[in-house]
Design a protein around this nucleic acid. Sequence first.
RNA 1: GGUCCCGUGGAGCAGCUUGGAGUGCUCGCCACCCUGUCAAGGUGGAGGCCGCGGGUUCGAAUCCCGUCGGGACCGCCA
Length: 589
Amino acid sequence: MIRTHPAGSLRTSQEGETVTLTGWVARRREHGGVAFIDLRDASGVVQVVVRDAAAAHGLRPECCVAVIGTVRVRPAGNENPALATGQVEVEAGEVRVLSESAALPFPVEDAPASAAVNEETRLRYRYLDLRRAPMAANLRLRSEANRIARAVMAEHGFVEVETPDLTRSTPEGARDFLVPVRLAPGQWYALPQSPQLFKQLLMVAGFEQYYQLARCFRDEDFRADRQPEFTQLDIEMSFVTADDVIALGEEVIARLWSELRGVSLPRPIPRITYAEAMARYGSDKPDLRYAVELTDLTASFAGTAIRVFAAPDGVTDWHVGGVVMAGGGGQSRRELDAWGQWARSRGAGGLAYVLVGADGELTGPLARNLSEGERHGLLAATGAAPGDAVLLAAGRRAGTQGLLGAARVEIARRTGLVDPDDWAFVWVVDAPMFEESADGGWTAVHHPFTSPTDAWAETFHQHPDQALARAYDIVCNGSEIGGGSIRIHRREMQQRVFDVIGLSSEEATSKFGFLLEAFAYGPPPHGGIALGWDRTVALLAGADSIRDVIAFPKTASGSDPLTGAPTPITAAQRREAGIDAAPRTPPTS
RNA sequence: GGUCCCGUGGAGCAGCUUGGAGUGCUCGCCACCCUGUCAAGGUGGAGGCCGCGGGUUCGAAUCCCGUCGGGACCGCCA
């Protein structure tokens, strides 16, 4: 090392020692005959005193320097308690500029008032953005999270196995990223959407306990919490029940929050069924930091004269529901009407409201059309108090609950019900196995290898609308941070799932044949979980976006302002890659 | 595929509703002054295709259309 000490490590015990430090000029304060340099390296910051004015003047912000000097205790009254090294300073003998820095595109050492910088600019100069304290802290936190996860896995005897990034396309679920194959023109690899099939093969292979911090790739549109490539803590275990996997998932999460946030999570983490989560919170990832719940008013409005609340003929899952906005009666007419606009912007028909007056009388555009029974039922069911507003929606059950659930989140946000220091974890269990697909058939909610619950093991194929899966999602503060299931290991049961989702045995063989073949050789009962590592770390870091816990993320259009990727390729690259080669065999679909 | 927001010296904003000289704020940058600061302070200075293209107008940062880029949301994400 060309330095003798990390800058952030110096203390009064080193007084008098001659040290060589290396790092970056964070700040410079010139006073004519004396200048103070805040020297930053990965360990922290220490103040360097430079008495050679000419030497100090050349030290531009963020240039890289070496300082040879003597550690001094600061003169009385000049200590800086805000710095870990604030009791000492380094009297510079020699300051060597190792490399200059051009004028900065944005401040690296933030003054508090100027912390916000356009994210595109930050990504363009990500190496400078990562010098900034919050981002540096986030990546170090992520590294610690990785270490903790590996420690927990090691303690339980898990085997870390790497799986391929170049694999075959399995055209279910998300769109694949495709990679042309030079040696076989017309053939394509796909990047894995997850190591799902490989980890099941590793169970067949007898490893029993596998994990991996796995990179996954999905060619879908972006959100604040999505990237085209992302990381999962991927886990699979043999001879386990759902409780075993859940217990392990809890241990990982509890250790992360304990060691990185100093938060002791209540164990076991509570569980809620999917049906209950939808009924009470209108979401399969409910934010339980606040208590607002939805109310089912379907029975109260069964014979309603209000047309929009009446079930059309033939709709069997009609639902009328409400959610109370405490104090919402104080909203202006304009604000109340804005809820309808808010609902329509989410693709819903609208959102009605009634207000509860001081005497419990109901007002609002709908109020006069409510029957006495409806008024009474509404008040009794919702528990709305004078001064409250009740937002009402009607429609098919899932969509209506979802809309009211979104309204619940919005109510909490607008009325300040969210405690940002709170952590509310919950397992959502007993999810449906299937959901209706756009073409009227059935599709697997989780994936087609998810086992039904014991109660549905023999009959799920007869009632795909009701069958429940041995699946579990872990939710934190309204974000799904992981999920998994017990898998199917019986060929006969797997075939029934394929039958339900309309996958012929030819298609199944073509898509998953290698897995089904492996399952002919004594597959163990197994199950697993994958934790969305970017979201998990973002929660730990208090970051608004997973981009803030990824070193080099992409923008919402999939570009990287730093490297300029993606780029066109040359004609020669195009020829060599075999992109335009005709397929050897006709595509299957 | 759809909806909405943003784009103004290097950074962050205001100006736009109601068109009238590139006007303003905070920070940074450059020069000089300054021997105990730590978001140092002081004086002076430089720096602009108001994202881009078109339209309306005597006149456009401002109004209209299109486009590009960024962000958020719906759809999508087994």
